[in-house]
Design a protein around this nucleic acid. Structure first.
Lengths: 377, 377
DNA sequence: CCGGGTTACTTTATCGGTACAGAAGGAATC
DNA sequence: GATTCCTTCTGTACCGATAAAGTAACCCGG
């Protein structure tokens, strides 16, 4: 043990202000301030949270003392417990988060939601669907409600949210009972794309879609291809429309919407014996891959091959040739989701019964330069 | 009032289970379960949070009773208060959230962080920098630490985070003292781009960058153009390198990195009397705008105009011609940020002094098809 | 049959707030 | 001059958990 140097006791370090006591920094709470000012703890609480409950002068005194002590504001966790609200809502994404944000659609939607929610004072928590070391975010993170984006209802994380009886809104996925939903008119969009190709005169049509449950490759049965709510809906729209015209499409499925996976599928789709003259794609990303593959095979788009995307992501306009695609309005989707959620939360707080709303976002076809009549054989 | 039907009392609605009491659903807590099973509340808590503290059999009994009562798990807010940790970390973005996620760089980074953090059991909260109706997320949201992305240090939200003495990590922005930081080697990247153009023989070089504080247009002084930490760093790298070769660039500034703003600037840059033969751009998005503007003016890239981007976003490879750009590794950036934050939080919990780390992410030049020697005049 | 080490629970003391029902004092009302 | 009404604080009672220390029973070797 080293003896203290002689002389006066060494000054305590200038930790924030006050609050240090014999070396141990005891935390500053409402009580600390109350003691210092000589009022009750409740009055200090009111100074921060309900200014109308005390005189302006007292409030100033308290706030000054608080600032002096380095007090920032009521502890968020404690407040959440006492008030029963947290000021945050969750967003659950099915996919791995890393890849979800590579998808401009998901990212834009997410941004739109956050933006729309900001003025209401709600922050957005991104919920990993993977649980780890005993922590299950969907079960363990404090929140006032949640958005479920593109998830199958049977997902375990969704289950936790439901069990917690949180106000929920389902976006781009099959909603569970009692919860609001925001959906695109997927089938209609798909129909528009298919009809466009039929109108141009195509009869050998390929579909390039997503199926994470089957091995990638040709789908044996066009009618039942695609996995997940969205892929299935679009598939129905496509097949329905094509069948009505007597056209049976060939269907190529890949596991994932993202780059490493789609290139191979795109090439396989175009490299077959009876190459389609037009392709309907699940997404713009996949359409881009098809265009790319076509280029590599020496095919010209749209002369040798027409390509239709889905989503109208920023990419679609930038691609050469600019992509014909089904346009969806992310901002509107985000806005609708945010609104549905806040109203759902408001009802919940008021103790009212949930009143599921169902928003359907309109889509339309944007014809650009990637589609044309088939070349006469 | 409608009289109840005769006969036995109507069955209570099958609300979760138990818990209803004269119409009022009193919430199920640890105590409810404890009473039901006949053990202390603490034992129930342990059944959920510390399984090694009780017998397997008792645990099963308790969990069964809990499930029966519709109890999901310890209340997150209460747990956060008692434990002093919340299981969430904030991410603060300067820009409006809606536009931030239109930027693939920011989105990819965000995704990488969330992904990297997921295994540690931490969820990510997106903090709007705008405060509203008395709610200031940076001050009022429960969290264990935060990432500050691309923000100037003088931002009010940053101030709150600092005042709260949360473990912080600054990414792509000027760090404050005592906090870790993750930065790109911006200057080096800029130098590589500039040197590449010089090596190709360009001497009339334009810079197309971002400045949100000055009105858009030509910057009077190349040396001091650009606003924000990143833009400034890149500017320094560019100007330094060009000056060493005796080249003085012309500099066009726009307010924002995103689409509606950049097109006009790009056109102005190429429409001047003494058009540059090559342009260094602040981002790939801006480079895409320049390529676009060139096309519209009937200029061919790279024959009539060389264009260098920055970031190597997914867009760069997809653009035609594929973009020469400075590559940064988002995944690595996200990983580094996540790691710095978790270690910072760990130190904080251990009561240790903060130990600022500084990570520098390497960048390199990817030469693709958008750059070539200038055409002989 | 006793001390030492487990195992399985229980007790006590917070964590840091907020809601709501008073209470005290002065002003306004009749 | 008593009644009522504000305004401005205070007291009490939670919110729903966890940490750490305490206690009782049990097991085991000596």
């Amino acid at each position: 043990m080293i003896a203290s140097p002689p002389g006066p006791a060494p000054a305590t370090y200038p930790v924030p202000h006050g609050a240090e006591q014999g070396g141990v920094v005891s935390r500053v709470t409402l009580q600390t301030i109350a003691d210092q000012v000589g009022v009750s703890r409740m009055t200090v609480s009111n100074a921060f949270s309900r200014p109308d409950q005390l005189s302006a002068e007292m409030r100033r005194t308290i706030l000054a003392a608080a600032a002096d002590l380095g007090y920032v504001g009521p502890d968020p966790s404690a407040r959440a417990l006492a008030r029963g609200t947290t000021g945050a809502v969750g967003v659950l994404l099915t996919e791995s988060l890393g890849t979800a944000f590579l998808d401009p659609i998901a990212a834009a939607f997410f941004g739109a939601v956050a933006e729309e929610l900001a003025p209401t004072g709600l922050a957005v928590v991104l919920l990993p669907s993977t649980s780890s070391e005993g922590m299950i975010p969907a079960r363990d993170i404090p929140m006032d409600g949640a958005l479920v984006y593109g998830c199958a209802g049977d997902y375990p994380a969704v289950d936790w949210l439901v069990k917690r009886r949180l106000p929920l809104v389902f976006v781009d996925g099959e909603p569970v009972a009692e919860a609001s939903s925001v959906l695109l008119d997927e089938r209609h969009g798909a129909r528009l794309g298919a009809q466009h190709l039929l109108d141009l005169g195509h009869t050998r049509i390929g579909i390039f879609t997503m199926n994470s449950t089957e091995p990638p490759g040709w789908a044996p049965d066009p009618a039942s291809a695609g996995s997940g709510f969205v892929a299935r809906e679009r598939q129905i729209g496509w097949v329905e429309t094509l069948r009505a015209a007597g056209v049976t499409p060939v269907v190529m499925e890949v596991h994932d919407n993202a780059e490493p996976y789609v290139s191979e599928g795109a090439r396989a789709l175009l490299d077959g014996p009876d190459r389609p003259t037009a392709v309907l794609c699940f997404s713009d990303l996949m359409a881009a891959a098809v265009v790319h593959a076509a280029e590599e095979l020496g095919l010209r788009v749209p002369d040798d091959l027409s390509v239709v995307g889905f989503d109208d992501s920023p990419l679609a306009r930038r691609l050469r040739p600019a992509l014909t695609t089904v346009h969806q309005d992310f901002a509107a989707k985000g806005k609708a989701a945010a609104a549905a959620l806040t109203s759902s939360i408001a009802r919940f707080r008021a103790g009212a019964a949930p009143e599921p709303e169902e928003h359907r976002i309109l889509v339309d076809l944007v014809v650009r330069d990637s589609t044309a009549p088939p070349r006469p054989a």
